[in-house]
């Protein structure tokens, strides 16, 4: 973080092996460890929440059911009736990202969504799924979408490459959006936390001024809570939109 007068805001994103030599040999870093924690949290939330299975639900069961309804409605409303088939996938995606974003806000934790490799892998998974579904549902008609309906055929050499480029940019924008938001938030946290430590070294007045970055970090935490949920939602809703285009005849 802060070493003397230098600030290493990106050091928090470095990956280190966990579980000693076993983790080293398995390439198991803190990132997959937090993925496992995120998966356990999501599963525990549903299993523990739904354990009473009461007709009149308690608080935790209500929360679990509300989450279920929220994603189900998102999938079905956006994709259409076919969205029921993709609901578990969208649910998994949303809560995997949400849990990853929120777990990353805990002290001594790690946000695996702040790694472009992870977000790109997720985005490519969505991208490939949408292509597979498109080819399965629409067949060769899928390629007709690259030529906008009603456009003059003379413009085809210009429009088709633009459309293909636009289509291929989907996983890039999807992954970079999530990655950049999470990185920016964590860098800001680190920077302001480093300011606090650096200012505290200036003596009495430094101690007073050091309160400023702490207050800013508190505000940033509220912002990051919002951003974490928003980015998970954006990722999930864009996935639904891509799948809607894929299932549309």
């Amino acid at each position: 973080m802060a070493a003397g007068s230098s600030i290493d805001a990106l050091g928090q994103f470095e990956l280190h092996p966990v579980l000693g030599a076993l983790g080293e040999s398995l390439r198991f870093s803190q990132s997959p460890m937090m993925m496992i924690v995120a998966a356990i949290v999501v599963l525990a939330f549903l299993y523990v929440g739904m354990r009473p299975a009461a007709v009149v639900p308690g608080r935790l069961q209500s929360a679990a059911e509300m989450c279920y309804d929220f994603i189900y409605n998102m999938a079905v409303d956006t994709i259409g009736p076919e969205g029921r088939a993709f609901f578990p996938f969208v649910f998994t995606l949303f809560f995997f990202i949400l849990a990853g974003n929120y777990l990353g806000l805990l002290p001594f934790s790690f946000a695996f969504t702040s790694h472009i490799a992870v977000t790109l892998a997720l985005a490519l998974m969505v991208f490939c799924l949408s292509i597979i579904v498109s080819l399965k549902v629409q067949g060769a008609k899928f390629f007709a979408h690259f030529m906008p309906a009603g456009a003059p055929k003379a413009l085809a050499p210009l429009l088709i490459p633009i459309e293909i480029l636009s289509f291929l940019s989907r996983p890039v924008s999807l992954s970079i959006r999530l990655f950049a938001n999470m990185v920016a938030g964590h860098v800001m946290f680190d920077m302001f936390a480093a300011f606090t430590i650096m200012l505290a070294g200036l003596g009495f007045f430094g101690d007073i001024i050091a309160v400023g970055p702490v207050v800013i970090n508190i505000a940033l935490m509220a912002l990051e809570l919002l951003v974490g949920a928003l980015q998970a939602y954006v990722f999930a809703i864009l996935t639904c939109i891509y799948l809607r285009e894929a299932v549309a005849h």
């Binding site: 390439r27 198991f28 993925m35 695996f112 490799a117 892998a121």
Partner: peptide, 12 residues
């Protein structure tokens, strides 16, 4: 570990 997390992530 950067690529390792992707493989682990896919499995998880």
């Amino acid at each position: 570990y950067v690529i390792g997390q992707v493989i682990w992530g896919a499995g998880i």
